[in-house]
């Protein structure tokens, strides 16, 4: 992706400059010049290639290799990591925890994306209207985005506490509940609570991108539509939604990729508990590598997550290409 993006402008530039600079070209000189040009083209690529290889290629390759090795703490000192083939994959995929984590990952992702998107879109449409304090309110809504995740999760952990949490106090004062709801300590509620917090964190991203998309839709369309009777819901259904679609697909796919790998929020809120009810593939992979020091198994599970994300990344590339085409 970025390779092609880096290449094309430089290519275009040198092509334009080539003949313009050369006033009286001799044949051999021209060939020489051409070769030089190619060299420059490659040199232009070098920083990008080096960067990609160093910061993307190496970790990915290393992680794949690690997942086929018995990689332990000792490996760091001795450098020895016996090759174990697919053993790590067999272990993590056949673990009774894998199906739980996979289901939780799916529920967490779908729930978060659905909530973030619907609320984000509703707010984006709301802020389309002109009213006082619009700008201030909109920037306040960005706050969850600006807070470090570890801070957000610590604060939410207090809010959601069963006995003295603000949420239960509030619901209790309204006489909605009689005893404290164990938001984070009940196996049936913890995942919902964690999804709720992640929705809160994701709204600004959805709001910002969708609001930007809405701004791009020309007013004339609505004016023309209203003459034909397309107002309110109909205007949304037949003008806003089709025009917003490319942006929507980008937001959704990026959202999925971001949400699949969420780690800090879950670790901060519940640590995967109670009784693994908020354990996702990401948290499980983290626990394997950095708590149990089974780096091989952790890498194997991490790769499973990478493959799942990759599916959505391909979808994203296709969606964004379509967006450009349109």
């Amino acid at each position: 992706m970025s390779l092609a993006a880096d290449l094309s402008p430089s290519k275009a530039q040198s092509r334009q400059h080539g003949p313009a600079v050369d006033q009286a070209p001799l044949v051999p000189r021209r060939r020489n010049r051409h070769r030089k040009e190619r060299l420059f083209q490659w040199l232009f690529l070098v920083p990008a290639v080096v960067y990609m290889a160093l910061f993307f290629g190496y970790p990915v390759v290393k992680n794949v290799i690690m997942s086929f090795q018995d990689y332990t703490t000792a490996t760091f000192f001795t450098g020895e990591a016996p090759w174990v083939g697919v053993q790590n994959y067999v272990t993590v995929l056949s673990s009774s925890l894998f199906s739980t984590s996979l289901l939780n990952t799916a529920l967490f992702t779908i729930g978060s994306i659905l909530g973030q998107f619907v609320i984000g879109l509703a707010l984006a449409i709301f802020f389309q209207r002109k009213f006082p304090l619009n700008g201030i309110l909109r920037s306040l809504l960005l706050l969850p985005w600006l807070l470090p995740l570890i801070v957000s999760s610590a604060v939410w952990r207090w809010i959601l506490d069963k006995d003295s949490g603000a949420l239960n106090r509030f619901l209790g004062d309204l006489n909605i509940i009689e005893t404290g709801v164990p938001w984070l300590t009940s196996t049936s509620l913890a995942l919902i609570a964690v999804v709720g917090v992640n929705i809160w964190i994701g709204i600004p991203f959805n709001l910002t991108i969708l609001y930007g998309g809405l701004q791009e839709i020309p007013d004339e369309l609505y004016e023309a539509g209203s003459l034909d009777g397309a107002t309110g819901w109909k205007a949304f259904r037949y003008i806003t939604w089709p025009m917003l679609k490319p942006v929507v697909s980008v937001v959704l796919v990026l959202g999925v990729v971001y949400t699949l790998k969420v780690l800090d929020i879950i670790l901060g809120l519940t640590n995967g508990g109670p009784a693994n009810s908020t354990q996702t593939i990401a948290t499980q992979s983290y626990a394997l590598s950095f708590q149990e020091f089974k780096f091989g198994e952790g890498a194997a599970l991490g790769n499973v997550l990478v493959i799942i994300s990759l599916v959505f990344a391909v979808l994203y590339l296709r969606a964004s290409r379509r967006a450009v085409d349109e």
């Binding site: 069963k162 006995d163 984070l184 300590t185 009940s186 519940t270 640590n271 508990g273 109670p274």
Partner: peptide, 11 residues
Amino acid sequence: KDGSVSSSALN
């Protein structure tokens, strides 16, 4: 279970 310890102990 008896309620002598808050179930928040889990977290």
